[in-house]
Design a protein around this nucleic acid. Structure first.
Length: 482
RNA sequence: GGCGGUAUCGUCUAGAGGCCUAGGACACAGCCCUCUCAAGGCUGCGACACGGGUUCGAAUCCCGUUACCGCUACCA
């Protein structure tokens, strides 16, 4: 097991779901951690539900998360001939047989069994047919499926990387269909055939596949192939403990991208859902740290709940650690999407824009949250409601605004810290609380009642802009009191 | 119904028989810091599903019960 090969095998019937993303991530992490390969297989055999749009969405989701795959994408639908050949090979070797029972007929028998005994299991009646009859009926064009003959005795089990020993009594497994009457393969057949062809050594997937596993193991054996290892990951649930669905709000990875979540935060958060490095550790980790720590023995068995509050906190942590250079394009996209700031303004005020990002990244939880705090620095607009509160009386407000302007103009150099100190001294001299001065000044500088610290704001705005805003604030107060 | 899986604070988890008076993180509450809002720091609240064993000793091992989840298709 020197170089493990793993795969993520989504069916393109929707967007990349956080559960699927987590499965992909764990496969990817395992492959990267052990110097193996991570492959992608699109299970598009369900023609009716599969769409190109969905396939694209899955690729984009994986790319956004930074989960790159090592070989060309395998499309399951392209391997139909091999699936069929593998099934026929099992018929030839006696591991499978043709069954002429119609779906309709089977359905009726199943319903009948439900009312009388309970469990329905295919009775193998077609396995009794002699070769000549089978040949005759096939030649006559009678539709038939291929069923796998489940070995009678013993049980089928494996040592799951997550759950340990799991086994199923063979008597509980019916002779399942591997090839439909139209010659297309059933899921378990296609998966097994493809995993063999792709030389997958570790099948890591959701634990909703546990009961498929014994069937696939039987297929590996019937085909004379070596078994891969299996690891069944727990599900991710919504806050109500039920399987995550649209009802729980944002469940697609792309939804979170639009909510302003950073891919590294999403990855970090997802990694900790169903896996733990064990012992005491810092939960905020980079992709490299995750790769270094990830391993199968840290995989958990219990389903976990997707806690959006923690995701947002995690995102805030990553935001604070992300460089302005990396942040800029993301915030720009958001700003332009909202239309709150134009591209021209962003370019013209690039210096201030980047300074603002540096000041804001440590105090925001999401990109959208951060972006909402940016415009204040790039264009001046006084919030009337806030102004009414912070500047209750015009005379007092004007006095402070003018004093602040004088202090700034008198300053020998544009040193935000020194200016803030000057403002504080001013407040002291006039017997005012610091807040009584800095509050109105903030209002004048930002047009808003809340912002980062005054010296930070001064630093971002720069001398000219700061003074211009004080003038504008003066005019505003004077105008509204007149 | 049958089969399989799971079970530690509201949530994510640490815990591999004594280190557990069960630790950390998110959330929540309070306090501190403070020019506002955040961020940050501190404190608090808060859990071994239940019942039997095994053992000198069990969150940890075994059995049962309960709850939840999955599968039980010519879906994937």
């Amino acid at each position: 097991m020197s170089s493990p090969r793993l795969r993520f095998a989504p069916s393109p019937t929707g967007y990349l779901h956080v559960g699927g993303a987590r499965t992909a991530l764990f496969n990817w992490l395992y492959a990267r951690r052990h110097g193996g390969q991570f492959l992608l297989r699109v299970e598009d055999t369900d023609r009716a539900r599969s769409t190109d749009e969905s396939t694209r969405a899955i690729f984009e989701g994986l790319q956004w998360l930074g989960l790159d795959w090592d070989e060309p994408v395998v499309y399951q639908g392209a391997n139909l001939a091999r699936h069929r050949a593998d099934a026929e090979r099992m018929v030839a070797s006696g591991h499978a047989y043709r069954c002429f029972c119609s779906a309709f007929e089977l359905d009726a028998r199943r319903k009948q069994a439900e009312v009388s005994e309970g469990a329905f299991k295919y009775d193998r009646r077609c396995d009794q047919l002699d070769r000549a009859e089978v040949a005759r009926r096939v030649a006559a064009g009678e539709p038939s499926v291929v069923r796998f003959r489940v070995p009678e005795v013993q049980s089928t089990g494996w040592n799951d990387l997550v759950h340990g020993e799991i086994s199923f009594p063979n008597k509980d497994i019916e002779d399942f269909v591997v090839l439909r009457s139209d010659g297309t393969p059933i899921y378990n057949m296609a998966v097994t055939s493809d995993d063999i062809a792709m030389r997958i050594t570790l099948v890591m997937r959701g634990d909703d596949h546990i009961s498929n596993t014994p069937k696939q193991i039987m297929l590996y054996r019937a085909l004379g192939e070596e078994l891969p290892q299996f690891a069944h990951l727990p599900m991710i649930h919504g806050t109500d403990g039920k399987k995550l669905s649209k009802r729980h709000g944002a469940t697609a990875v792309a939804d979170w991208q639009h909510e302003g979540i950073l891919p590294q935060a999403m990855v970090n958060f997802l990694a900790l859902l169903g896996w733990s490095p064990g012992g005491e550790f810092d939960e905020v980790m980079t992709m490299d740290e995750l790769v270094a720590k990830f391993d199968a023995d840290g995989l958990l068995k219990k389903a976990s709940v997707f806690d959006t509050k923690k995701l947002e906190w995690m995102n805030g942590q990553h935001l604070a650690r992300t460089s302005v250079e990396q942040l800029e394009p993301l915030v720009t996209t958001q700003l332009l999407r909202e239309g709150t700031v134009t591209r021209e303004v962003l370019q013209a005020r690039g210096m201030q824009y980047r300074a603002a990002l540096g000041a804001l990244r440590g105090r925001s939880r999401t990109i959208t949250d951060l972006a909402s705090q940016v415009p204040v620095f790039l264009k001046y607009r006084i919030d009337p409601a806030a102004a009414a509160k912070v500047w209750p009386d015009a005379a007092g407000a004007l006095a402070i605004i003018d004093l602040a302007r004088d202090a700034m103009q008198a300053a020998p150099a544009w040193e935000p810290d020194a200016i803030e100190q000057a403002l504080r001294r001013m407040a002291e001299q006039r017997g005012l609380g610091v807040g009584k001065v800095l509050g109105p000044v903030r209002m004048a500088l930002t047009g808003s009642a809340s912002s980062p610290g005054i010296s930070i704001v001064l630093g971002v705005l720069g001398r000219d802009e700061a003074l211009a805003r004080l003038e504008a604030a003066h005019a505003y107060v004077a105008g509204s009191s007149a």
